[in-house]
Design a binder for these strands. Structure first.
Length: 262
DNA sequence: TCATTTGTTTCATG
DNA sequence: ACATGAAACAAATG
């Protein structure tokens, strides 16, 4: 689920659900504590009695500032999301709960537990120490060309690398490579700088559209490749070239062979 | 039983 | 030190 657009929608959901309400309690529902990178007592110290005052997203990483002046970092892994609830029973796969003074509760759900909940000193410090590049939406074509054009790896692998620009995940990588007619295994250094520029601008456009449509793929404009990302699917513009699946950088990858040639 | 999944980190290799 | 690629992490589904 969570690539840049999904996390941006999650950020907005968090703003609506949690901002400026006092946190009165926390619940920990991951017995092995895989998703907690900070000690529960530190989380309690930092969060109980505080309010969230500000949110910031960089790539797929969400940061929440508290009135006690610390930052909470949330990452949603492959299967994480947020759900507000008031009922007694927990939403499925809940790992963590914020309890607010108005009775609302906010669940951090994560089936596969690749998510992360941790206190950090600031978003900037976190990005610095974890080698995280700037947000995709603020990347310039010059910077993008400079970082990508000299690499020897497959273009898709470079798009998924969060080191220089953060936010692209598996479906967006497939989407933009399809749009630009580039084979995902094409080596970065063999792509012209005009084409690289086109790739970046397309990625930013795809992200904007996805955010605009609340990341509901069914409501994306006709022809969006995300809705044809399965083997043998037939994209209306390429009726004679059904979708093929391959593996690039260890990730399942879908292409229209007629449009994306090596 | 085996392969699949919208992510990231760690480890081995060159 | 750096670039690259495979494996590991976890849990459900077909």
């Amino acid at each position: 689920m969570p690539e840049l657009p999904e996390v941006e929608i999650m950020r907005r959901y968090f703003e609506n659900a949690a901002m400026d309400k006092e946190i009165v309690g926390l619940e920990f529902h991951d017995p092995l504590f895989k998703v907690f990178k900070s000690e529960p007592k530190d989380l309690e110290k930092a969060l109980i009695g505080a309010k969230f005052t500000e949110s910031q997203r960089i790539g797929k990483y969400l940061f929440l500032k508290t009135s006690k002046n610390s930052w909470l970092h949330l990452h949603f892994g492959m299967t994480g999301d947020l759900e507000i609830f008031r009922s007694k029973e927990l939403p499925k796969y809940t790992r963590f709960v914020f309890q607010f003074d108005d009775g609302d509760k906010l669940a951090f759900r994560d089936l596969r537990k690749f998510g992360v909940i941790q206190l950090v000193s600031s978003p900037e410090a976190f990005c610095e120490s974890s080698n995280l590049g700037e947000d995709l939406l603020s990347v310039t074509p010059e910077y993008f060309r400079e970082k990508v054009s000299t690499r020897k790896i497959a273009i898709k692998t470079a798009l998924l690398d969060q080191k220089h620009f953060a936010g692209i995940g598996n479906w967006i990588a497939d989407e933009v490579l399809f749009n630009c007619g580039i084979h995902p295994k094409k080596p970065c250094h063999s792509i012209s700088s005009e084409k690289l520029q086109e790739l970046l601008l397309n990625a930013q456009e795809v992200v904007r559209i996805a955010i605009d449509r609340d990341t509901h793929y069914g409501e994306f404009p006709e022809g969006f490749f995300v809705n044809y990302r399965k083997e043998k699917a037939v994209h209306p513009k390429f009726p004679n070239s059904p979708v093929e699946r391959l593996v690039v950088g260890g990730r399942g990858t879908f292409i229209v062979p007629e449009k994306q040639k090596l």
